[in-house]
């Protein structure tokens, strides 16, 4: 059983890599990068230019946009396909009948979505260099921290996406995506360092419920010498996010897969 299941897992992953790189690359990259490009341009370049933000705002913004792209790309690459595959195209059935446990099918979905998130996220760095007035300064970056945050952030996004994709009934998909994604984007410490919310205490507390807060803050710590949430709290937040959303997501997937 294990050999067959390992082979099946690898083959599923191969199929997804093939589709990502050979069929989907341009649409996939434009879908995941268009929004962050506008965020970088409008908030990082236009606002300072017209005097509505300080010129250094881009430095605080880039780690947040990087976290946002990682997580949102991973999230959307698992949630939306799952809703469609479970209800409309039924494409998931061929995977569920492949010789591997149902939880592994969920695991593979997380892995490929995280990979897509990483791919989109990494491209934010050269884009930031192009778009932001001050470019990107990596002289203070901790490379280990950056790699760790990219991988963990993408996985966390994929886990949130798995919950999202299996919990939303197909008839409500359009409304649910708007209702969930918008708060997710704006409460994740993307556009502001978390510590600077001191004066808006209730909002600062609310943002702790969003896993993206920890990814943004961790990214700020890894990329800049700007103030950020302490590393211990970031680590704890990430572990809890991965555990909670990972568990709920895999359980939700199993419930959809086996009645």
């Amino acid at each position: 059983m294990n050999r067959a299941s390992n082979q099946a897992f690898v083959a599923l992953f191969e199929r997804d890599l093939y589709v990502t790189f050979r069929k989907d690359l341009i649409p996939f990259l434009s879908q995941s990068l268009l929004q962050p490009i506008f965020f970088l341009f409008v908030f990082g370049r236009v606002l300072p230019e017209i005097g509505a933000a300080r010129g250094s705002y881009g430095i605080a913004l880039l780690p947040g946009v990087l976290a946002l792209t990682l997580m949102l790309t991973a999230l959307q690459n698992v949630a939306l396909p799952l809703v469609i595959e479970f209800s409309f195209t039924k494409e998931i059935e061929d995977r569920l009948l492949a010789p591997l446990p149902v939880t592994w099918v969920a695991g593979e979905k997380l892995l490929i979505a995280a990979l897509r998130g990483i791919l989109g996220g990494i491209l934010i760095i050269p884009l930031g260099e192009l778009i932001l007035p001050g470019g990107v300064d990596l002289s203070n970056a901790s490379w280990i921290g950056l790699v760790a945050m990219i991988v963990i952030g993408a996985l966390a996004g994929a886990c949130v996406g798995l919950v999202h994709g299996t919990a939303v009934p197909p008839s409500r998909i359009t409304i649910a995506f708007g209702l969930i994604l918008t708060p997710f984007i704006y409460t994740g410490a993307t556009f502001y360092p978390w510590e600077s919310l001191d004066g808006l205490r209730w909002f600062q507390v609310v943002t702790l419920a969003n896993p993206m807060t920890y990814v943004s803050e961790g990214m700020r710590g890894a990329l800049t010498d700007q103030p950020h949430m302490a590393a211990g709290w970031v680590a704890l937040g990430l572990v809890v996010s991965l555990a909670v959303f990972g568990f709920l997501g895999v359980r939700g997937f199993t419930r959809r897969a086996v009645d």
């Binding site: 050999r3 067959a4 082979q7 099946a8 083959a11 599923l12 191969e14 199929r15 093939y18 589709v19 069929k23 989907d24 195209t89 039924k90 494409e91 998931i92 059935e93 061929d94 995977r95 492949a98 010789p99």
Partner: peptide, 20 residues
Amino acid sequence: NLDRSLTAIENLVFHAAYFG
């Protein structure tokens, strides 16, 4: 419930791969 991202023959080839 065919895999709509793939061509006909790719559907068969990847299915065979799932089964080793």
